[in-house]
Design a protein around this nucleic acid. Structure first.
Lengths: 253, 253
DNA sequence: GAGTGGTCTAGACCACCGT
DNA sequence: CGGTGGTCTAGACCACTCT
């Protein structure tokens, strides 16, 4: 027992790799630069490609890298701050809110949404699909669920389908007085449809923002928005902005 | 070219596995139940263990499963809603805010935090460590950075270290008038220290909530809180609560 | 077609938990 | 101690993008 064990806590190789790569990214690479391919990198570090990939995956999760099949791995820019919650409540579609209506269908919402809306489990609602673009890149996809009772004056005739109908639904919403809204954020993975819209592979990590809009004493609409977790930093709160921070390892003790 | 291609878009095995497992979880398992071990499951589905693990990883990310080394894989309960942003701004430590002070040290903050606080890059600040527990489970770990100028009356004598000193710092904060706060949420991975406190392995996905507290016309304190992404749903907003929703695959079209 | 990242395999050993 | 999930290897093939 007299030997000083230098390797008493052997940290996993991929973890150490991640640390080394992080330092390299901070010092030797600039945003947009492309890294050597995975096979070369793995050989250079003397590990299997799967091990290297485990490190790259985490770095991508943390928004440090961007990987694209058929192209390569590049150094990602700092995350974009996107405003999600603000003190001034407003209906979606009001005074252009950074979202762009895409189309509108009518269908039965998922069970969880139906619970929020207090509609029958098999009652159809309007579903407005919108997308959010920042700096030319898609950052979020949204499904807005609006029961027919929230837009009674909506005429099925003047906008039968597509983006025009989406705008019609949003326009009708403004006629109600918004009494409040509640939001939640959780981690999810992109479904096939969202992945396509976000230009990612299915299963990519997303931040799911669920918003309930209250009007006339009930939940008048529900929005489920999925933001790219790799590129987005969601900002809430009243005053200024919250800046970037890159804290690879926080504190020693 | 006359053949109808049924397999024109062969989805990955792990993706299909995830779908099958999700349905099984919804119908055949109850919360807390333990699944067969990974080797058995892989054999049952006729895939390699690595492939099965890829599916399990995603399900854990979505909060459907909980895996613990040496124990097994269990069905996770629905995510806990934890209140993070509220309209009534209050200093940390006020009117017991669900956080428990752990200890307090003095050190130079990370560069990003120093930027927020507008302190010199090598100026030491008070660092209060707090933890948040819900239903007996640790859900978040926080580092609260307080520059000395925000707590001028703090005496180094009456609470030299530990939780007592942490409480002393929090007490002094209440003396300022809080003018506002701004928050951001982003995805991260747990460092060694946070992982230990959250009872997870290093690298586990976390939701990083950064809060700036404004007082006396400047940023008087910065809090960086890491929440377990697998078990937590962060709630913001003014009125009620946002309920659970499990939407494995959202919409077909 | 050449080169990239994404998926998959069939093993092996390790770290941890319970008994 | 036996059983679990966590790490790692050295290959193979596939899907995609660019030229």
């Amino acid at each position: 027992m007299g030997t000083t064990q230098l390797e008493s806590v052997p940290e996993p190789k991929y973890w150490h790799l991640k640390t080394v790569l992080t330092e390299a990214l901070d010092s030797e690479f600039s945003v947009g630069e492309i890294l050597p391919n995975e096979r070369d990198l793995a050989a250079r570090f003397g590990v299997a490609r799967a091990t290297l990939r485990q490190a790259l995956e985490q770095l991508e999760l943390e928004g440090r890298l961007q990987r694209r099949r058929g192209v390569g791995t590049t150094v990602a820019p700092p995350r974009v701050g996107v405003a999600v919650g603000s003190e001034q409540h407003a209906w979606p579609g009001a005074a252009d809110d950074a979202w762009q209506p895409v189309d509108c269908t009518t269908a039965v919402p998922p069970a969880g949404v139906a619970d929020h809306l207090e509609t029958d489990p098999d009652e159809q609602v309007h579903i407005v699909r919108r997308s959010r673009v920042t700096h030319g890149q898609p950052v979020a996809a949204e499904l807005l669920y609006v029961p027919g009772s929230s837009v009674p004056a909506l005429s099925a005739i003047d906008a039968p389908s597509g983006a025009a109908r989406a705008r019609a639904v949003l326009r009708e919403l403004q006629h109600m007085e918004l009494e409040g809204q509640a939001q939640s954020v959780e981690l999810g993975s992109a479904g096939a449809a969202d992945a396509k819209e976000l230009d990612r592979l299915p299963g990519a990590p997303v931040l799911v923002v669920t918003t309930r809009f209250y009007a006339e004493g009930r939940t008048a609409a529900v929005s489920v928005a999925t933001y790219r977790a790799d590129t987005c930093r969601l900002t809430f709160g009243d005053s200024g902005r919250v800046e970037i921070h890159h804290d690879p390892e926080r504190r020693a003790s």
